Computed example of a mutant assay.
Amino acid sequence: MLILRATEPLTPGHGTKTATTLALGLYTAYNIAATVASIPAGRPADRLGARGPLLVLTAGVAAFAASYGLFAVSSTAVAVLAIPFVLAGVGIGAVETAQHSAVAVLAPKDLCGSAFGLLATVQSLGNLAASAVAGILWTAFSPSAAFAYLRVWMLLALSGLALTARR
């Protein structure tokens, strides 16, 4: 969805081939940001005890919420489009690190394997549902509607993480 989101507004000004190349470059920036964020995201998860993974997860989800909010607004400027790509990369780098760290810290030791399996199941089902609904919203309404929907889920996740952190 990210590549398509960048390609559509860039095509009228750059043509299909150049817009696609620029979008792929932006996706590369996403992957670089994810790579760069992953190891630093693991440090507080390790050093802050059981709350560490929740704090890192919260930061990652906040980055996604900001990214999706920016993706909901269309732009034809590559530099402006780079911001939500990089934010999403930082988000995925933090979230993937923190999810696994949280399971390792919070799950009972005798259920750790099952907890990782449950995490993978929830991720798969969540990705399927989010992609299906976002795809329908994109097609029926607009890309902005799809990203607004995804942003709402990130804001709900932030609320849930805030409640969890208080306990």
Score class of each variant (00 low, 15 high):
residue 163 L to A: 09
residue 88 A to D: 02
residue 69 G to T: 13
residue 164 T to D: 13
residue 47 R to V: 03
residue 114 S to R: 14
residue 52 G to Y: 01
residue 102 A to G: 04
residue 101 S to D: 11
residue 161 L to H: 05
residue 148 A to V: 11
residue 48 L to A: 10
residue 68 Y to Q: 13
residue 89 G to I: 03
residue 53 P to K: 07
residue 1 M to T: 14
residue 154 M to W: 09
residue 40 P to C: 07
residue 117 G to P: 01
residue 40 P to Q: 07
residue 1 M to D: 07
residue 119 L to V: 00
residue 21 T to D: 13
residue 95 V to M: 11
residue 55 L to T: 10
residue 125 L to H: 05
residue 37 A to L: 08
residue 122 V to A: 07
residue 150 L to F: 11
residue 132 A to K: 05
residue 129 A to T: 12
residue 113 G to A: 06
residue 12 P to Y: 01
residue 159 S to P: 03
residue 30 Y to N: 11
residue 20 T to P: 01
residue 67 S to I: 13
residue 86 V to D: 00
residue 130 A to H: 12
residue 54 L to Q: 05
residue 138 W to T: 02
residue 153 W to I: 07
residue 80 V to I: 15
residue 147 F to Q: 07
residue 146 A to T: 07
residue 62 A to V: 03
residue 77 A to C: 04
residue 82 A to F: 04
residue 166 R to V: 09
residue 74 S to K: 08
residue 161 L to M: 13
residue 29 A to S: 01
residue 160 G to F: 13
residue 112 C to L: 11
residue 163 L to F: 14
residue 86 V to I: 15
residue 149 Y to C: 08
residue 71 F to L: 03
residue 22 L to F: 12
residue 25 G to M: 05
residue 18 T to K: 14
residue 17 K to P: 04
residue 47 R to C: 05
residue 99 Q to E: 15
